[in-house]
Amino acid sequence: MSAKVYTLDEVAKHNTKDDCWLIIGGKVYNVTKFLEDHPGGDDVLLSSTAKDATDDFEDVGHSNTARAMMDEYLVGEIDATTIPTKVKYTPPKQPHYNQDKTPEFVIKILQFLVPLAILGLAVVVRIYTKSESA
């Protein structure tokens, strides 16, 4: 006997506390009876409905015992052609972000003027102390 094959649209209709189905590893599971017993709470499972939850499941790192329990909730397989393919995110091209918000030309001017001001102050102090001693 072959397993029933469901489309994503069919599985997506089962997204409530009273009727919750998940897609994990190409298989469809009716986890409604497990919602109250799930260690992470029912919200974790409900947030994984209507999509391929394989990554969500694997990211948590479930134990072998948890994986063995899945067989009792299996209701069929998913028609993989009905699941949208993942698109790799490409960030938009943006100009370089200057974190300190100080324009570069201001920094270059300060790098020139600050040492010059210190030198000038030293000369003024030197002249002033010479005139005081005279």
Rank of each mutant, 00 (worst) to 15 (best):
60 V>F: 07
60 V>E: 00
60 V>A: 05
61 G>S: 08
62 H>S: 09
62 H>Y: 06
62 H>A: 08
62 H>L: 09
63 S>V: 08
63 S>Q: 03
63 S>T: 15
63 S>Y: 01
63 S>R: 06
64 N>H: 11
64 N>E: 14
65 T>A: 13
66 A>L: 12
67 R>T: 10
67 R>F: 09
68 A>E: 04
69 M>T: 12
69 M>S: 12
69 M>P: 03
69 M>E: 13
70 M>Q: 02
70 M>K: 07
70 M>V: 01
70 M>A: 12
71 D>Y: 05
72 E>Q: 15
72 E>H: 06
72 E>W: 04
72 E>G: 08
73 Y>K: 00
74 L>K: 12
74 L>N: 02
74 L>D: 00
75 V>N: 04
75 V>K: 02
75 V>F: 04
76 G>P: 10
77 E>P: 05
78 I>K: 02
78 I>P: 02
78 I>M: 00
78 I>V: 09
79 D>Q: 14
79 D>K: 02
79 D>V: 08
80 A>W: 06
80 A>H: 05
80 A>T: 15
81 T>N: 08
81 T>R: 03
81 T>K: 14
82 T>G: 00
82 T>A: 05
82 T>H: 07
83 I>Q: 05
85 T>W: 02
85 T>V: 13
85 T>C: 01
86 K>R: 07
87 V>T: 10
87 V>A: 14
87 V>K: 13
88 K>A: 06
88 K>S: 04
88 K>F: 01
89 Y>V: 00
89 Y>L: 01
90 T>I: 13
91 P>C: 02
92 P>L: 07
92 P>M: 10
92 P>V: 15
93 K>E: 12
93 K>L: 09
93 K>V: 11
94 Q>P: 00
94 Q>N: 13
95 P>G: 07
95 P>W: 05
95 P>A: 04
95 P>Q: 11
95 P>N: 01
96 H>Y: 15
96 H>V: 15
96 H>S: 03
96 H>W: 12
96 H>R: 11
97 Y>D: 11
97 Y>F: 11
97 Y>M: 06
97 Y>E: 14
98 N>I: 12
98 N>H: 10
98 N>P: 04
98 N>C: 07
98 N>Y: 05
100 D>V: 00
100 D>P: 02
101 K>R: 14
102 T>N: 04
102 T>P: 00
103 P>T: 06
103 P>Q: 11
104 E>K: 14
104 E>W: 05
104 E>Y: 13
104 E>M: 01
104 E>H: 03
104 E>V: 05
106 V>E: 09
106 V>L: 15
106 V>Q: 06
107 I>V: 12
107 I>F: 07
108 K>Q: 14
108 K>F: 08
108 K>C: 03
108 K>V: 09
109 I>A: 09
109 I>T: 07
110 L>S: 13
110 L>R: 11
110 L>V: 10
110 L>A: 14
110 L>C: 14
110 L>Q: 11
111 Q>G: 07
111 Q>R: 09
112 F>T: 13
113 L>M: 11
113 L>F: 15
113 L>S: 12
113 L>V: 12
114 V>E: 04
114 V>R: 08
114 V>P: 04
115 P>I: 02
115 P>R: 00
115 P>N: 10
115 P>D: 01
115 P>T: 07
117 A>Q: 06
117 A>M: 12
118 I>C: 07
118 I>Q: 01
119 L>H: 00
119 L>Y: 09
120 G>M: 03
121 L>F: 12
122 A>F: 11
122 A>C: 15
122 A>P: 03
122 A>W: 08
123 V>Y: 13
123 V>M: 15
123 V>W: 10
